[in-house]
Design a binder for these strands. Structure first.
Lengths: 251, 251
DNA sequence: AGCGATGTTACACGAACGCGCCTGAACGTG
DNA sequence: CACGTTCAGGCGCGTTCGTGTAACATCGCT
């Protein structure tokens, strides 16, 4: 059995079974456990799986579920959220996009803030209900199961009539030339409606969203006024955004 | 079972059940309680849960007042919810009012149900997002912090255009002569809009809401077609509702 | 053919990890 | 205050990991 064959088999098993054990692979593929461990280490280095003691797991666990996503890079999310929360001033009309980072942002808003918050995300609305100084408005619509935001014509219509002081956009992809992108057409229209007439647009993007692009274009980078990202980003990667006049904040 | 798998299971249980007990996890996952405690300690260190004596809780507790209410008479709520959930048929348009009992109802819907659910309650929307066969629509509006439902003109308008097959109403008070009552004027208008044009109206009321009245009248009892209540109610108290042609279901 | 370079594998050994058990301390409750 | 439960830390055991080393095959070059 060739090395690449064996690794393909390993990835297949991982996809179908959801996990692999080093010892099982060793016996079933009839190679020493050292070879398997080398394979797993190598595949982990290529980002094709996640090495754990005893075997390996899919890299993104269950990336589809909202709860699973909120478990990814929680400290980066939290620091971005804290930094972004400091951008909100009393009396502002704040529009919050959905997503795990914006949910953290909602939780990070200071307790004595007095503002009006509008969101398409039911979990964010629930998180903000406790807050004493906020007026929370939920944008209605059809609920997207994976991202937990509302979409559809009614959501777009409701957002169009709002002139936000500041919009926080949880981006799926942010690319210097392509702009803000997402992977769902309906969500794109909702995000675009948020941006219309907004005074400030703050994009929240952790390091592995920068420089990436998703299939659906939301808006060009000129629509974004601020970018909040985490500390794990080299300055060179941020230069193109600064060149476009975007204020870049490192958390 | 790999360590990471086990911790994922723990977080999933925490998310679905709202809490986990160390001893339960130990027996169900078939590892020593020491291992579970190590897991919980580790996950707490990562900020993914909140360690407490005996188990763990979600790091971000639910909205306080709402969460407190949902702990009141949980077994009565659950049985009412189960009974009411059986009233829903495939293909129906279901409107769900807010409240802790209707939240339980949402969780009690059978997994293979295919229906369209419309709700003013963000927590209910979140709870239903996992459900594979449901089309979930959130009614937008201003969020009431204590009851976690949306209210206001836009909510009323959105509900007016809907002809529901079945409406589940979480009532604050149900009185044979006064009818359905609540304690918030805005919520009253939302509830009233739900009832308009509904084919069936199911009121969910545990024993201590029967025979009581709140300040604001939502609708007369003639608007209600079904009443689901718990077993702790004497027949005499139900007679007046039956006399009005309401089908009474005891859970 | 001879030779070295490269890549892949198996074996060996110390280190690290995960788990269960134990003990004293802390907690919650009556 | 006293009791049972739960907790944190330490220890030992078995497994797994990473690295170093040697054996073997393949390939390209002379």
């Amino acid at each position: 059995m060739l090395t690449d064959e064996r690794r393909t088999v390993i990835l297949d098993r991982l996809r179908t079974h959801g996990r692999v054990l080093a010892t099982d692979l060793s016996t079933e593929l009839d190679v020493s456990s050292d070879t398997i461990r080398r394979d797993l280490r190598e595949l982990d280095g290529q980002g094709l799986l996640r090495r754990v003691h005893g075997g390996a797991l899919p890299r993104h666990g269950d990336a589809s579920s909202f709860a699973a996503r909120s478990r990814r890079a929680p400290e980066a999310k939290a620091s971005i959220a804290r930094r972004a929360a400091a951008c909100v001033n009393d009396g502002q009309v704040v529009v919050l996009d959905g997503g795990t980072t914006t949910l953290e942002l909602a939780r990070a808003l200071r307790d004595d803030l007095r503002a009006s918050v509008i969101t398409t995300s039911p979990p964010i609305a629930v998180a903000l209900a406790d807050h004493p100084g906020l007026d929370v408005t939920v944008i209605g619509g059809t609920l997207r199961a994976d991202s937990l935001v509302t979409v559809g014509a009614s959501a777009v219509e409701a957002l169009r009539i709002i002139r936000a002081d500041i919009v926080f956009l949880g981006v799926c992809g942010l690319h210097p030339e392509i702009g803000v992108t997402t992977n769902d057409l309906e969500e794109r229209h909702v995000k675009a409606a948020m941006l219309e007439g907004a005074a400030e647009v703050v994009a929240l993007a952790d390091h592995d969203k920068l420089g990436t692009a998703m299939p659906v274009i939301v808006a060009p980078l000129s629509a974004v006024t601020h970018l909040v990202t985490d500390a794990d980003v080299e300055d060179a990667a941020l230069a193109p955004y600064r060149a476009l006049g975007i204020e870049v904040l490192r958390a």
